[in-house]
Amino acid sequence: MEQAKQPKPPVCIRVKDASVRFNMAAERVDNLKEYFVKLMKRELHFKEFYALKNVNLVIHQGESWALIGSNGAGKSTLLKLICGILQPHSGSVTINGSIAPMIELGAGFDPNLTAKENIFLNGAVLGHSRKFMREQYEQIVEFAELQDFMDLPIKNYSSGMRARLGFAVATVVKPDILIVDEVLAVGDLEFQAKCRARIKELLSQGTTLLFVSHAKPPVLELCEHAVWLDHGEIKKLGATEHVYWAYEQYLNQKRKERLAQQGK
């Protein structure tokens, strides 16, 4: 499992025995009446659900990791844990360095504001000052290739245009850790290629990458290592080809079983 070869660069992400627990019963209670009814019936603390179970992961500086697995396997949960959006129920997460999260690009965009106003707002969410954003503004617009649409409210943007803008803002500064969650799929092919080139450029400068995608080619192209998550647990981790191969085997196996069942 662990690959020990040359001396490693310093650790930048250490996830130690981390679990994330959701309380399914409590989550559906969002009004007072239900709360008291459930409290009386003592149902409030039932139905716990682990989105992640005892996950251990050590990532060194400059490495590129893919997270693979079916929908609902816990990939996004793990990314949110690393970003600090979620806190682990048990275990710990230690991060060294700045993080640029790209989970659903442009989620922070306000539909009523113009693209220009949104660039500044999104930059501020990522912790950049207005001064810094003013300096980088031209570069962002140029990268997104949306020069003519800067005064248009974002609500009139297509999802592809939003993704362009989001990617341009998120990668304007070289982050220590770049997190890309299934965001390249929306842009057109040309822009996808541009994004991959930008990610590679950042990687060559020492950025650590965490990448989630359901498409095989970009995973193999960008990532050296991979983690396969299934039902909140790490099934396998190691070199991308090996892990992806095992994952595909597992999927084939499942498809065969399903076909066999249907045949009956």
């Binding site: 949110k80 993080i99 989970i103 659903e104 989620a107 922070g108 990522l126 912790g127």
Partner: peptide, 9 residues
């Protein structure tokens, strides 16, 4: 919510 779910601010 959309923002709080995506970035740590």
């Amino acid at each position: 919510a959309a923002l709080l779910k995506k970035a740590s601010v």
